[in-house]
Amino acid sequence: MQTEKKMRNIWYFVGWVLLIIGLVELSAGVYDLFYPSNKNIRLTDLHANLWWGVLIVIVGIIYLLKNKDKYIDV
């Protein structure tokens, strides 16, 4: 009941969205390792979707953990 009047801060939501989007991108990167697709894309051998996905997941987790107990009084 106490949290009803308190608003979650935005950084918490940023954490969630980055985590989810990063995980989807990371999954695409892993899938690409086994089933490479789209020959027209350049530099696919760098597997950018994989490591960029990992980076987004890490940033998401950091924001999520740092802000999981933070609320704004309104």
């Binding site: 989007i21 991108e25 695409a28 690409d32 789209n38 530099l43 950018a48 960029w52 996905g53 987004i56």
Partner: peptide, 14 residues
């Protein structure tokens, strides 16, 4: 279009 493959393309379009 030139560089982004699956997943990355979704982030780019988003």
């Amino acid at each position: 279009r030139r560089y982004f493959n699956a997943g990355l393309l979704g982030v780019g379009v988003t």
